[in-house]
Amino acid sequence: MSQDNRLVHIVDEVPELDAARAEGHLTMVLVLDGFLDAGNAAARAAQHLIDLTDGGGSVVATFDVDQFHDYRARRPAMTFNRDHYEQYDAPRLLVRLLKDSGGTPYLLLSGPEPDNRWEAFARAVRSVVERFGVTRVVSMGSVPMAVPHTRPIAITHHANNPDLLTGESPWRGELRIPSSAQALLEVRLAEWGHDAMGFVAHIPHYLAQLDYPKASGALLENVEIAGRLTIDLSGLAAEAEDREAEIARYLAANDEVEDVVRALEQQYDAFERAEESGSSLLAENQPLPTGEEIGEQFEQFLAGLDGPDES
């Protein structure tokens, strides 16, 4: 047994996947918490998938999280009850077998993004993909952007095979960005002959620290198409409506913050017009609020909204 195989324990027999193997189509959804998760959008989407399956699905593969997690950088929570410690929330990085609304089985790999040994992690994921016959890995992520919450959620589509792309990229040219374990995995899977693709939601930066279920729903809508799955999104839609109403109430009572949102709307619309006309990606005479201005206004904004752990 290779060292990489010892990093993940895979269940030997999973009869529920036999039909998927026979049909030649099995999707694995990938969500790694931490770096690519503004607005908790991807993690909330993953939890929604788990909640939709009775019992949260069955675990079919478990990674040795001790080999990947930096406990001092990301200390797990635990409870101190009067005079003793209890309820340690151990980090878990695992693969679940879930079923969509129509009974179609698929896999979900979720947990904290590895802090180290990314190459070893990628090889361990390869073992899962090849053991179960996964035909497509679909990842979800989200990043903070200077966009208003009053406009549709923009999604960046990416794939290691151009035939997999289901939408146009909002970007032009080449960008140098910080890497992630998810991004590296997509590159390595291509080298090993496995299809991988994903979606990154653009989150209004002033909402990046709050749960933003509207983006979770947008991500899962794309996962449905890419993974050939049927997902009940009604629960997320209700959460999104409640959050939007909360934001609207706060903006109505705070003119300064509303002014900043309006400036973002003008910038967003100017970009859209420029893209449609093909004239320029840069909009003229539409100044974007400065980072200092946005920061000052939305410190007040965030203080007026409930946090993700509150009702």
Rank of each mutant, 00 (worst) to 15 (best):
L98E: 01
R131A: 13
D89A: 15
G133I: 03
F121M: 02
L108W: 01
R117P: 03
G133A: 08
L97P: 02
G133C: 07
Y85P: 10
E119S: 05
P112F: 11
G111H: 05
P105K: 01
V129E: 11
L94G: 02
T104F: 05
L93Y: 00
F132K: 06
D100H: 05
T135Q: 11
R117F: 08
G102C: 07
D89Y: 01
S127E: 14
F132E: 07
G111T: 09
P91T: 13
S110N: 06
E86P: 00
S110I: 04
R123T: 02
G141W: 13
D89K: 12
E119R: 12
V138S: 10
R123Q: 15
V137E: 09
E130Q: 14
R126Y: 12
R117E: 13
L97R: 08
G133H: 04
L107Q: 03
L107K: 01
R96D: 02
T104W: 02
V138M: 04
E119L: 05
Y88H: 09
D100I: 10
R117G: 00
P105R: 00
E113L: 11
Y85N: 06
V138T: 14
G133R: 05
P91D: 09
S110T: 15
D83H: 14
R96I: 02
A122H: 11
P114E: 10
G103C: 13
A124T: 09
L107G: 09
D83T: 13
V128S: 10
V95D: 11
T104N: 13
R123E: 14
G111K: 02
G111V: 13
R131H: 15
G102L: 10
L93Q: 01
L98K: 01
R82A: 08
F121Q: 06
E119G: 00
V128T: 11
Y85S: 07
L97H: 06
R117W: 05
E86Q: 13
L109T: 04
P105C: 09
R96V: 00
V128C: 11
A122F: 05
S127A: 15
K99I: 08
R96N: 13
H84W: 07
R117V: 01
G133D: 06
E86A: 14
H84L: 00
S110C: 13
Y85K: 04
Y88A: 07
D115R: 08
S101P: 00
R123G: 12
G111R: 01
V134M: 11
A90N: 06
D83V: 02
V95E: 10
A120D: 15
M140W: 00
A122W: 12
P114T: 03
F132P: 04
V134Q: 14
K99P: 00
L109N: 06
D100W: 09
S139G: 15
G133T: 09
T135P: 05
R117Y: 09
M140S: 06
G102N: 15
L98D: 03
P112L: 12
R136I: 06
A90P: 02
R96E: 01
M140Q: 03
H84T: 10
G141E: 09
E130L: 10
S127T: 05
F121Y: 14
R126Q: 14
P105Q: 03
K99S: 12
R92Q: 14
S139C: 12
D83L: 06
V95G: 11
Y88N: 07
Q87A: 15
